[in-house]
């Protein structure tokens, strides 16, 4: 079980990195919606599997604060059009991307998400959604190309994708609020860490 997950992580990482990395990067949509999420996901799965109970990480990541901040700021940095350009222009930044996304976004997310205050979790979810809507809208109305390495029409497709993803995700989360029973979940998680935080 654990071995298959680690293989999957490796697979995701190599998928993003190897020769096919080029194939992802020639398209803005594939770059942003497949490669970057894959790198983050690889880190996330690895973190969930192997690091979530690491004593040292728990010690320096009380209430998940340091980790979630790192995830937000470094992840946010890779949302900048300029960062995408930089990753394509020179090999240094490309390497930084392959390292920072799994290690400084995926892993911190994995080890912090369950530890942060549930209200903070909800705020981050909503802020993530509204950010997708804003980015989508901006990409659609921007008169200029935001990335020098991609065409305007790709940017527009990406903008639409953002809007579609944001809409589906909000519908999914709304449905969840009506479909699941959070009483049971709360009792199941009774001995989990974050419950203490909410009191």
């Amino acid at each position: 079980m654990s071995r298959s997950i680690l293989f999957f992580v490796l697979f995701l990482y190599l998928l993003s990195y190897s020769i096919i990395g080029q194939w992802f990067e020639v398209s803005m949509v594939r770059h942003v919606l497949i490669q970057i999420p894959c790198l983050v996901l690889a880190g996330y799965l690895f973190g969930r599997k192997s690091l979530i109970n690491n004593r040292f990480l728990i010690l320096i990541n009380d209430k998940g604060l340091a980790g979630i901040l790192m995830c937000i700021f470094i992840g946010g940095y890779w949302m900048l059009p300029r960062a995408l350009d930089a990753a394509l222009a020179g090999s240094n930044m490309a390497l930084v991307k392959y390292i920072s996304l799994p290690f400084f976004v995926g892993i911190p997310l994995a080890i912090s998400w369950q530890r942060i205050h549930p209200i903070a979790r909800a705020v981050i979810k909503i802020e993530f959604l509204t950010m997708l809507f804003r980015l989508g809208w901006l990409y659609l109305v921007s008169p200029n190309r935001l990335c020098n390495f991609y065409q305007l029409n790709e940017q527009i497709i990406l903008g639409k994708c953002f809007l579609i993803i944001a809409t589906s995700l909000s519908l999914y989360w709304i449905l969840q609020l009506f479909a699941e029973d959070y009483r049971e979940q709360e009792t199941l998680k009774k001995n989990n860490l974050y419950d203490q935080a909410s009191s």
């Binding site: 340091a66 901040l69 790192m70 940095y77 300029r82 960062a83 350009d85 200029n144 020098n148």
Partner: peptide, 26 residues
Amino acid sequence: STTLVLIISAAVWWQGTSGFKAFTSE
């Protein structure tokens, strides 16, 4: 660790946006 993360993030963003002035390479 939180302070470190904040300092490093601020540095990354400062460097990456030319002091919060440029968000695109253009």
